[in-house]
Design a protein around this nucleic acid. Structure first.
Length: 287
DNA sequence: GATCCGTGGCC
DNA sequence: TGGCCAAGGAT
């Protein structure tokens, strides 16, 4: 299935700035962190600003967490911005200001897990790495395993499958990874896949089986209204939009939650390093 | 391994 | 309308 897939990619891949040949490894790393659980269209403008402002890890490390969280905007999961600053600081202080090439070292950086380490090794450095994201999981679940959707959690069996499918040659493996990922993002989507436009339709085990619906356990949808996540998000947004420190009263009001929950969320944000201050001086983003 | 962690758009 | 999903990671 390599030929048709890579050919499809050559004709239909999106032109994304972090895929350009002249994009530095740092740009690839930033894009991968921003893309964690976040759609491409939302990342694009933030990534461009970010790279103009902090073209390398040293510049970001020197800027500090507050500016990073503010520049993160509404991408969501702002702890990613803090971890990116922490990773940049580690690169500046312990890696000569360079992004390391091997997965092991990448994996040791804050906010860089199994997927992101493999993606940076492959896409920034052309290395052979087993890249498994939600798109690749879904494409392989359908094309190879013959089921509509992968299980909720990433399994060892999936890792073995992806490892076995990965081409031995490094350059081919990179094309394979990016092509499979792109197919999952554009054609082999979670809802309403465009099988009529899929280069793998003739060899897809799921299509061959008649495209049966998902028969796995019902997926737990995450609650939103009334959760700590919502309240934390409101507090961080208020801190981000504020010119100066906010009083305790202003923070708790921004949370839009009952007092006990608002207190808990403020405490959690202080612990996480997403907020700073006290009742006397007021509260701000970290400095 | 189960949970927690934001945000917004889509069908 | 609202459940569901988007290039996951840390604990």
């Amino acid at each position: 299935m390599r030929g048709p897939l890579v050919d499809w990619y050559a004709r239909h891949a999106r032109d994304l700035p972090w895929r350009h040949d002249d994009c530095p490894a740092w740009g690839v790393l930033v894009s991968e962190v921003m893309l964690q659980q976040t759609p491409v269209v939302r990342v694009l403008p933030r990534w461009t600003e970010w790279m103009e402002r902090w073209p390398g890890p040293t510049e970001l490390a020197d800027a500090g967490p507050g500016e990073a969280v503010r520049a993160w905007g509404r991408l969501g999961y702002p702890r990613r911005a803090l971890r990116l600053v922490d990773a940049a600081t580690a690169l500046r202080d312990h890696h000569g200001g360079e992004v390391p090439q091997d997965e092991q070292t990448l994996r040791s950086l804050p906010g860089i897990g199994e997927y992101t380490a493999a993606a940076v090794a492959a896409f920034a450095f052309g290395r052979r790495a087993v890249v498994v994201d939600t798109n690749i999981r879904r494409v392989q679940a359908r094309a190879v395993t013959g089921v509509a959707l992968p299980a909720p959690g990433y399994t060892a069996a999936e890792r073995r499958l992806a490892t076995g499918l990965l081409p031995a040659d490094a350059a081919e493996s990179v094309r394979w990874n990016v092509s499979t990922m792109e197919l999952g993002a554009l054609v082999c989507t979670a809802r309403n896949p465009s099988c009529g436009h899929c280069p793998l339709v003739d060899q897809c085990a799921w299509v061959a089986a008649g495209s049966p619906p998902d028969d796995g356990p019902p997926r737990r949808t995450q609650a939103w209204a009334g959760t700590d996540r919502q309240a934390r998000g409101r507090i961080v947004q208020a801190l981000r939009d504020a010119d100066g420190p906010l009083s305790r009263e202003q923070v708790l009001t921004a949370a839009g939650a009952a007092e006990a929950q608002a207190e808990r969320c403020l405490g959690g944000l202080l612990e996480d390093g997403l907020a700073e201050g006290d009742d006397r001086a007021g509260y701000t983003l970290p400095q």
